[in-house]
Amino acid sequence: MIPELLRSLAPQVTMALVRRYGDFEACEDAAQEALLAAFRQWPSSGVPDHPKGWLITTASRRRIEQWRSDTARQRREEAAAWQPDPPPVSGVDDTLTLLLLCCHPALTQPSQVALTLRAVGGLTTAEIARAFLVPEATIGQRISRAKRSLRGERFESPSSDRLSAVLQVLYLIFTEGHTASSGDALNRVELTTEAIRLTRQLHASLPTDGEVTGLLALMLLTEARRPARVSATGALVPLARQDRSRWMSEFIEEGVSLITKALSSAPVGPYQLQAAIAAVHDEAPTAEETDWAEILTLYDLLRVVAPGPMVTLNRVVAFAQVHGPAAGLAELSSAASDPALALHHRVDAVRGHLLELSGEIEGAREAYLAAAGRTLSLPEQEYLRSRAAALAGR
């Protein structure tokens, strides 16, 4: 389909112009205009035989027009000396180079995310704003500031030591799509789909990198469960109650294959460990047959390799499954002393679950209600309140 083709070509068109003309902001704007022109024209005129060349030629013309429209004498003189021929069409996929540029350390993380989705993903400002439930003007300002921050940068291939920032940005995009932090939808499929698409392209460029492979596997294994996470009425369905026949088996097979290969051929990293945990969940025929002891072992490793508040909290859940709810509550009490977790709604949600398993019904109900009051996600609020209501009559 034309939208998918344009999104896959967006980074290549942008980088072709950047290499020729050097001004990221102006080149990215010109590339976006070319993509818009194609989106409007190709459905009626047909896709050209060489779509990438068409886009680069059109974007190059837009860039020259922008340059020549500047009224400053110096710009007019420089424009007169320019060669109007478009840059040559390269057979190289520039996705990785542009991803690294968009994750420049001078940019804030929200700006890195917005610029990546715009320049690499080909999403419009309006699409990004809708996905993150923020005003379009806010996203527009983030993108504009990001491009201004990159003004004057030398546009050579950035060092690969920026790869960790790229992985983090792609992970953030996926995570926001998998469980929206606010709003009335649990999932934002456009974000998870885009994150997987971009990570696939990154993996194609770096097929032997264990963490790139691990992140792609993690996304696939997590996305595989999406069809069963929401009921027919739109209510959240927890993992233990999901209809596993609705999980996407092709994603599970691919994800398991990827993580198995990565763990046997590359140094172990946090994305690989998270993918391994997801694989244990996905391969269990039923919730009762989940190998929680293996999951706890993996979380113990993850806590060493990449400690963090969410790792600690997720480990508590696994610990409780192995050692019982009372032991889990003791672990949770210790974890909740971390300021990063003190007011997080998931602490109360886990506490409510463990108290319910321990038979402390009133305490569980209060914890569920406290959790509902702290999340901005409407599906999560409704689920937590329904759990509290179910306990009211017991």
Rank of each mutant, 00 (worst) to 15 (best):
L273I: 10
A327C: 01
R162M: 03
N314F: 04
R145A: 12
L186D: 03
W54P: 01
L298G: 02
S265P: 05
V237D: 12
S334K: 11
A327W: 00
A114T: 03
S160W: 10
L313S: 04
G324R: 07
W54R: 09
R200S: 14
P270Y: 06
S265N: 14
V134P: 13
E4S: 11
E33V: 02
T138H: 11
E223R: 12
A26Y: 07
G308E: 06
R142N: 12
Y171F: 12
L263V: 02
E78Y: 07
L239S: 09
R130Y: 10
P3C: 08
A370K: 03
A137M: 08
A119S: 15
E78I: 03
S90V: 04
Q109H: 12
G22F: 08
T125W: 01
L186W: 12
P270T: 01
V120F: 09
S334Y: 00
Q41V: 10
M248L: 15
A217C: 05
D70Y: 05
G53W: 00
S144N: 12
G373N: 06
M1G: 13
P267M: 03
L117W: 00
G53T: 05
V230C: 01
L216S: 05
A80N: 01
S257W: 09
T58Q: 15
W82N: 02
M248G: 00
E127S: 14
H345T: 01
V89T: 15
L355A: 05
R229M: 15
M1Q: 06
R63T: 00
L35K: 04
G393T: 14
A240M: 01
H323A: 06
L206R: 13
Q66Y: 09
D184C: 06
L263C: 11
G140S: 06
E360N: 10
P285E: 05
S386Q: 13
P3Q: 06
A72C: 05
S111W: 08
Q272F: 02
V92R: 14
D282Q: 15
A195S: 15
L9D: 01
A80R: 13
R241H: 12
S157E: 14
H323F: 11
L355R: 09
A37D: 13
L96T: 04
T297R: 13
L150G: 07
T192P: 10
R73C: 03
A10D: 03
R130M: 10
L296C: 08
V350C: 07
V169D: 00
S45E: 14
G308C: 13
R226V: 15
G363L: 10
W42M: 08
T57R: 15
R68G: 10
S45N: 11
G324W: 00
T95I: 07
D94K: 05
P307E: 06
S111P: 00
S249D: 11
G53M: 03
A30T: 04
Q83M: 07
A276P: 11
L218T: 02
A31H: 02
